[in-house]
């Protein structure tokens, strides 16, 4: 069973970017069963910017599933943004999941934006001022909803989609001082509470691609400035061989670095 997953985050669309991704997106059916967007689709989270996202990522030949990012919250127009995206056929997850029938099996995707807080031993605590408690509780609530969504899905393969990072591994390259604003260990704990095959996130523009949760789940940072291409493609499954890689190989691709 092999499921082909394309993913990118932090595309920050506005009128000046529309059209840049589209040629690469048109190639998606050849190499992927689904496209995941790891949040920060827009610059300021306006309805107008969401329409740019709909133009660029709508009407593709593969399903598109997204979470929102912190930028998508900036102008407090989340309901309008979500409506524009959903009208364009894009599935927006926040504390819930979706199951897609792919050629290789049923792919379950659970998603939340997530939040900051930091990582084990160096994280914020639910203690002290109300503002601090609210900060940490936002993180905990988000992680709890991700864990519940992951455990609720009936599928053959499970993927977690977040904007904030569940592990520090994929933040390498970012200043250590800002790790607590880039992710939280509770997201990793939620991912490890279910038989998750892959976790995908964005947000850390100066981070690195690869990491692993303490429970052994592969984590990939797909922020556009990190992957430096329209999207990354992951073939996830237990019977991979070079023949299964051939569709993308025909257009000049090479064997992966796995």
């Amino acid at each position: 069973m092999v499921i082909r997953i394309a993913a990118v985050g932090d595309v920050h669309l506005d009128e000046d970017v529309v059209g840049r991704f589209r040629p690469a997106l048109e190639e998606l059916p050849e190499c992927a069963d689904v496209l995941l967007l790891a949040g920060d689709l827009t610059r300021h989270g306006t309805e107008a910017e969401a329409r740019c996202v709909a133009t660029e990522f709508g009407g593709l030949a593969v399903p598109v599933v997204t979470v929102l990012g912190n930028h998508d919250h900036q102008c407090d127009q989340v309901p309008q943004v979500v409506k524009v995206l959903e009208d364009a056929g894009i599935t927006v997850l926040e504390g819930n999941g979706v199951v897609l029938d792919c050629a290789g099996g049923r792919l379950g995707i659970a998603g939340v934006k997530g939040f900051g807080g930091g990582f084990a031993g160096r994280c914020a605590s639910d203690f002290g001022e109300p503002e601090m408690k609210a900060f940490v509780r936002t993180t905990t609530d988000s992680a709890d909803r991700l864990g519940a969504a992951l455990r609720s899905l009936d599928c053959d393969m499970l993927v977690a989609l977040t904007h904030y990072s569940p592990v520090p591994d994929t933040l390498a390259g970012e200043p250590l001082e800002i790790y607590p604003f880039l992710g939280s260990y509770q997201l990793g704990q939620a991912i490890d509470s279910a038989p998750t095959a892959l976790a995908v996130h964005g947000h850390a523009h100066a981070g690195t691609e690869r990491g692993t949760t303490p429970g052994g789940v592969r984590v990939r940072n797909v922020a556009h400035p990190v992957i430096k291409q329209a999207y990354s493609v992951f073939h996830v499954g237990d019977q991979l061989d070079t023949d299964q890689v051939s569709p993308i190989g025909q257009s000049g691709s090479q064997r992966s670095w796995s």
């Binding site: 690469a24 993308i248 670095w257």
Partner: peptide
């Protein structure tokens, strides 16, 4: 300015 071309490699995750 970040490149936005299609990927030339995939990553296999057995």
């Amino acid at each position: 300015v970040i490149r936005a071309q299609a990927p030339t490699e995939i990553e296999q995750l057995p």
